[in-house]
Structures are given as structure tokens and as C-alpha cells.
């Protein structure tokens, strides 16, 4: 793609993402209807002024549910990204800076890359759901569980990219200068290595938000993520497929929002990558 088009893609992605994030964050305040309020007299309604997206089989307002679902889906995406980027960056920096750790950590990364991740995530969530929810209550525990499991199984690409960047930074003369003046390893990492690998970390962070949103939706769609009364985009899509022939909107809205968010995030990531790549500054 030409360079002239790229900033446009970045702006388009950023605007779209900002719009989705803002409306899901502020939406429940502006759109006053409660998420779980059932109104059996107004079941299965089409779009109207009172319910712009209609209501579901229990008379719950779809717009309110979609907005609330977005909070959870985007929240899971962002928090799982934090877990995965923190893990990946730590492992990548350690492997790039500490020579004797490089081999073992990269073998570990390879091992994780050859795990069948989707089945393992499904198993982990099913097995740990019941005991955790007894300890922390159903809502917090499933949220924490999903975030942890997705984060712990998606750090590998970040670790690889960061390690490569760290290795190239470690060969620069300013790192050698810092070393020769007796700077401690931790200080070199925070003052020289991390700032210079920033753009690579940001790009892989955007990609892992997108991947986490898709994974969470997949889990909810398979019925093994969030519980049924918990509105997330994946869950709403799953519930909507049962009424696909009569009320397609119920599956289309959450599905379209998942795809639009992922699309926006991918555009932002692509735009940031080209910005951070000095070869494109010419």
C-alpha cells in the first residue's frame, strides 16, 4: 500500500475505535434502560423509538445489552492484552538481555506455540470456573479467569518480536557506552532497551487486543465463556443465532460490532507499524 494512504487508515481506525469505545463506555449512562430488565409484554419486538434495536425473547432491550456487552468484550480485550503484553515483554527482554536465559525461554515460547490453544483455553475455563466462582462470586471470577487464561496463552508473538528488537538494541553503541560506565542491567533495560522497543510493543499490543476480543467471543459463542445471563458480544451473537430466521438483527448487531472493533484495531496497528518503521519515513 502507498504511504499516502496509511495515515488515512490510521485515522479511520482510530476514529472508528474511539467511537465504539466511547459509545460503550458512556452508552449505559446516556441510554438509561437497564440491561436485565425483562418486559414479557414487549417480547421479540422490532426496532421502534422505545427500543431502537428491538427486544429479545425476554423483552430485554437489545441496544442496552449490546452496549453493556461491548464494555465486557472490550474490557476483556484490553485487560487480556495487558497481561499478554506484560508477560511477552518480560520474557522477550529477559531472553534478549540475559544470554543464558535466551535458550530456555525461546524453547518455552516454541512449546507454547505448539500447544492446541483453543481446546486448552476451553478446558481451563471449564475446570476452574466452579471452584473460583465459589471463592470470588460468579461475575468477578469468570472475568478474571477469562482475562488470565487468554493473556497467559497469547504472549508468544510479543515475546518473539520484543526479543528480536532487544537483541538489535543491545548491539548499539549507546548500550555499550552505558555498560562501560557500569550501569546496572535493570537500568539499561528501563532507560535504553524498553524506550527503543516501544513501537514494536505497541504494535503487538494492538494485535493482541484484536486477538483477545476474538478469543473471548469464540469462548462465549461456544457456550463455555461467560454465563448465559451475562451480556457479551459473543454471547449475544450465540443467543441470537437461535432466532436467526425470524430476528436476524439480534445476531447481526453484536457480530458486526465484534468485526468493526477488530477491523478498527487492525487498522490502528497497521498505521502505527508504518509510523514506527523508519524505512517509511523517507
Amino acid at each position: 500500500m502507498t504511504n499516502a494512504r496509511r495515515p488515512l487508515a490510521l485515522w479511520f481506525g482510530a476514529w472508528l475505535l474511539g467511537l465504539i469505545v466511547l459509545s460503550t463506555a458512556l452508552g449505559p449512562m446516556l441510554w438509561g434502560l437497564p440491561v436485565d430488565q425483562m418486559d414479557l409484554a414487549a417480547r421479540n419486538q422490532g426496532p421502534s423509538a422505545a427500543h431502537p434495536l428491538g427486544t429479545d425473547q425476554l423483552g430485554r432491550d437489545l441496544l442496552a445489552r449490546v452496549l453493556a456487552g461491548g464494555r465486557i468484550s472490550l474490557g476483556v480485550g484490553a485487560l487480556a492484552m495487558l497481561v499478554s503484553v506484560a508477560l511477552g515483554t518480560a520474557i522477550g527482554v529477559l531472553a534478549g538481555m540475559v544470554r543464558w536465559l535466551d535458550g530456555p525461554l525461546m524453547r518455552l515460547t516454541d512449546l507454547f506455540l505448539s500447544l492446541p490453544l483453543l481446546p486448552l483455553v476451553l478446558i481451563a475455563i471449564t475446570l476452574f470456573r466452579a471452584p473460583l466462582s465459589a471463592a470470588f462470586g460468579p461475575e468477578t471470577s469468570i472475568f478474571v479467569l477469562v482475562v488470565t487464561v487468554i493473556g497467559a496463552t497469547s504472549w508468544m508473538p510479543t515475546a518473539r518480536v520484543v526479543r528480536g528488537e532487544v537483541l538489535s538494541v543491545m548491539g548499539r553503541s549507546y548500550v555499550m557506552a552505558a555498560r562501560s560506565t557500569g550501569t546496572r542491567g535493570v537500568t539499561i533495560a528501563t532507560r535504553h532497551v524498553l524506550p527503543n522497543t516501544r513501537s514494536a510493543i505497541i504494535v503487538s499490543a494492538t494485535l493482541s487486543v484484536a486477538a483477545a476480543i476474538i478469543t473471548e467471543s469464540t469462548l462465549s459463542f461456544l457456550g463455555l465463556g461467560f454465563p448465559p445471563d451475562f451480556a457479551t458480544w459473543g454471547r449475544l451473537l450465540f443467543d441470537g443465532t437461535a432466532y436467526l430466521s425470524d430476528y436476524p438483527g439480534r445476531a447481526l448487531w453484536p457480530g458486526a460490532l465484534i468485526s468493526l472493533s477488530v477491523l478498527a484495531i487492525v487498522y490502528v496497528g497497521d498505521g502505527l507499524r508504518d509510523r514506527g518503521d523508519p524505512r517509511n519515513l523517507r
Binding site: 500500500m1 484484536a210 476474538i214 467471543s217 469464540t218 459463542f221 459473543g234 451473537l237 450465540f238 441470537g240 443465532t241 436467526l244 430466521s245 436476524p248 445476531a251 447481526l252 457480530g255 458486526a256 465484534i258 468485526s259 468493526l260 477488530v262 477491523l263 487492525v266
Partner: peptide, 26 residues
């Protein structure tokens, strides 16, 4: 082709499946 492949990435299988069912079956 670029557009379609970006869509192929952004539209997960559980949503593209629903879209195809809606179009071709319903």
C-alpha cells in the same frame, strides 16, 4: 483482494458462518 483478506481476518468464523446461513439458507 486486500479488502477481502482484511475482512477474512476481522470477521471470525462464528460470524461469517451466521452471515452465510442468513444469506444462503434463510
Amino acid at each position: 483482494a486486500t479488502g477481502v483478506s482484511i475482512i477474512g481476518f476481522a470477521v471470525p468464523p462464528f460470524f461469517s458462518g451466521v452471515l452465510l446461513i442468513l444469506l444462503f439458507s434463510v
